[in-house]
Amino acid sequence: MRSVVSATFAVLLLAPLPAVSGPLENLERERAALLTTLLDPALDPDGRQERAGPALRRLVDLERIVLRDPRAAAGAGALANRAFADYDLTFLAHASVERGVSPLDLWLDRLGLSSDRLLAARIGLR
């Protein structure tokens, strides 16, 4: 079951935003790394917290760079417009602080998933 859930998260991890060149691409890469760490079943809670802390600080720094860089919004056209239109997923660290939830909870919520739904899921063929 863990492998199916891990595979599902790996696919969903790449779904929210396409790769964009420049600061947005770096932001997405760091966001994906943070979510991978938070979803890693091989880590115990203490190890997950230890690895997620520095990744979250890097993500916050990259989000600030993108938010303050006027070229980021104007330079990539439609892709940048999509990134800025979906604020909660693009700027995950800032949005999670604004809403008072963890980045993982916010990300799962925006994708329409919850802990209850994941625990109720069954493995099977369709």
Rank of each mutant, 00 (worst) to 15 (best):
R2L: 14
S3F: 08
S3D: 13
V4W: 09
V4Q: 11
V4G: 09
V4M: 08
T8F: 12
V11M: 13
L12K: 06
L13Q: 11
L13N: 11
L17R: 06
A19C: 08
V20N: 00
P23R: 13
L24Y: 00
L27H: 09
E28I: 02
E28A: 07
E28K: 02
A32V: 02
A33W: 00
L35I: 10
T36G: 13
L39S: 11
D40E: 13
A42R: 15
D44Y: 02
D44T: 05
D46W: 05
R48H: 03
A52H: 05
P54G: 08
A55P: 00
L56D: 01
L59F: 01
V60Q: 08
V60H: 04
V60Y: 02
D61I: 11
D61P: 03
D61H: 15
E63Y: 05
I65Y: 03
V66F: 03
V66Y: 01
R68K: 14
D69P: 07
A72Q: 03
A73V: 07
G75L: 14
A76Y: 04
G77K: 10
A78L: 14
L79R: 11
A80Q: 04
A85W: 04
A85K: 05
A85H: 05
D86Q: 00
D88F: 00
H94I: 07
A95G: 07
S96K: 10
V97Y: 04
R99K: 15
W107N: 05
R110M: 12
R110G: 08
L111V: 04
S114Y: 04
S115D: 12
D116F: 05
D116T: 14
R117E: 03
A120F: 04
A121Y: 06
A121R: 05
R122G: 06
I123P: 02
G124L: 11
